[in-house]
Nucleic acid binder design. Sequence first.
DNA 1: CTGAAAGCGCTTACAG
DNA 2: CTGAAAGCGCTTACAG
Lengths: 323, 323
Amino acid sequence: MSPITASRALRGERAVTPVLVERVQGAAKRLGYVPDPAARALASRRSNHVAVLIPLLSNQLFVELLESVQRTLRTAGFQTLIGVTHYDQDEEEQLLGEQLAHRPSGLLVTGFERSEETRRLIASSGVPCVHMMETSRASGVHCVGFSQQDAGHAVAAHLLEGGARRIAFVGAQLDSRVMKRAEGYRRCLRGAGCYDPALEWLHPAPSSMALGADMLARIMSGPQPPQAIFFCNDDMAQGALLEAMRRGIRVPEQVAIAGFNDLPGSSQMVPPLTSLRTPRGEVGAAAASMLVALMRGRPVQDTCIELDYELVVRASTSGARTG
Amino acid sequence: MSPITASRALRGERAVTPVLVERVQGAAKRLGYVPDPAARALASRRSNHVAVLIPLLSNQLFVELLESVQRTLRTAGFQTLIGVTHYDQDEEEQLLGEQLAHRPSGLLVTGFERSEETRRLIASSGVPCVHMMETSRASGVHCVGFSQQDAGHAVAAHLLEGGARRIAFVGAQLDSRVMKRAEGYRRCLRGAGCYDPALEWLHPAPSSMALGADMLARIMSGPQPPQAIFFCNDDMAQGALLEAMRRGIRVPEQVAIAGFNDLPGSSQMVPPLTSLRTPRGEVGAAAASMLVALMRGRPVQDTCIELDYELVVRASTSGARTG
DNA sequence: CTGAAAGCGCTTACAG
DNA sequence: CTGAAAGCGCTTACAG
């Protein structure tokens, strides 16, 4: 038997007699033979690498997204190369360049906001690419996410239902996903006739508990504080809850507080934090699966998958003003 | 000029005229030429990959360790392959096997606790390996960390100084680092003549805020509750602080609470949480640097680097019983 | 279904 | 300091 036959048997290529396949695979296992990925990549002009670009690892949201991606890819036989962009377009561009040098078979990126040059790099690389966390119906685009705007709308609507009219929105980082949530909030309040731009607090710093605490203090010390606050991320809302405690501000009686993403600690807060559970695990799994199909040249019917989110109502917004 | 000369110029190998080097690098930049890592790996029998094994990504501690590692390695021109073991020795073994298939140039692992087979794989691979977060003076071992036991001792000593005699220890996950902290706690309390095994609460589940809350409830509802509690990780202590609030247990007056690692939220807690800041960022950077030296065949004088930690005293242990 | 030939894009090792 | 030759360990593309 020639080396090529062995090669084919190992790769599970059809066109090899089952008996031979078994013999080869048995021998490989016995000898602990593992094909050299470098030689494979060189000869076949494709690696088993998938490059993934995410903004941060310090937001639990992306950690869960990533774990899910990695699990799915690993099962399909791919290695994940992780690049953390820190929400910096230049850094993303450079990371992508480095990752592309490895001739990855696929690419997973977060959202659609990036430099023109990065877009060009992706397109000209010819590497299949799936976008995560946001959706777009543009043709040729592959994506798995959910409607950030509708989700933002849902949170605002919940606060409105609780009886609040003056509802503040606190955004941090100001990446496109946060801005879409803000847009959903605006759409909702405008519809209810109670939108007031003075209630929109947008801060470019990364979201954090400390920033949330700081924002709550600022917002509540104004002349006419809002009845409810929608924080763009749970860490901000958690920090706000703790600051409220320090200041003796009663939640939700004095001010209702809602977050976004439903991160691990939120159910533990005092009071427990109302939030919107985003399907990041599902996004990661579905995006990775779609990419695997693309990499294998299989047809992908649904090129844009929109997943469901879930409003999780807890005591930080309910109790007092309900009904 | 021949291709080999260009190859040498690009790699910054000496033995090429500076003029040529400049000419080649200029041309490469102009043409956007990037050497194929697969071809490089095949010809040179070494990749620019470094495999990193960490237990979890959902503990901020490891995220910071990893970010630091990745930053250092990237600067030195290496790609990081991340494997998350979930504290599972079988999973670690399998991940290592997959990573070794990529012929990494170096290996970074967490601690010393692993299966015999994994140890054998590492040794027989011949790939330089640096251990992180714990230290060992065994010969041939490369490691960067700090003394988990001394750090545990320091926390217990602080609680003792606060006037407490009945000091509980709560451990979760029960990996070797937690057990070393427990040992430090024991050593300290034994020295003070107040060690009581009944005050040691060891739970195999992963540490979390919810578990911390649960443990506090259990511990404080006993007949003779402790005056202080040392939680093995800050997420546990944070959960405990919130549970104390729910139950109207005053901290630190009724019970002092200390955590470990000084994670981001701890300074935001009510009251702010006393903790021990572990040098994970420094560990990651130093371990990666040591590995880079090993991979480049450069001598490493100090094969075991022990870094400093810092006790961060906040209101959860001080105020009432001080002095 | 199986095989002999060629080559993927680099670097190593040996000359000069 | 520079170069011609060989080869890294696979797979592709072409025959049979």
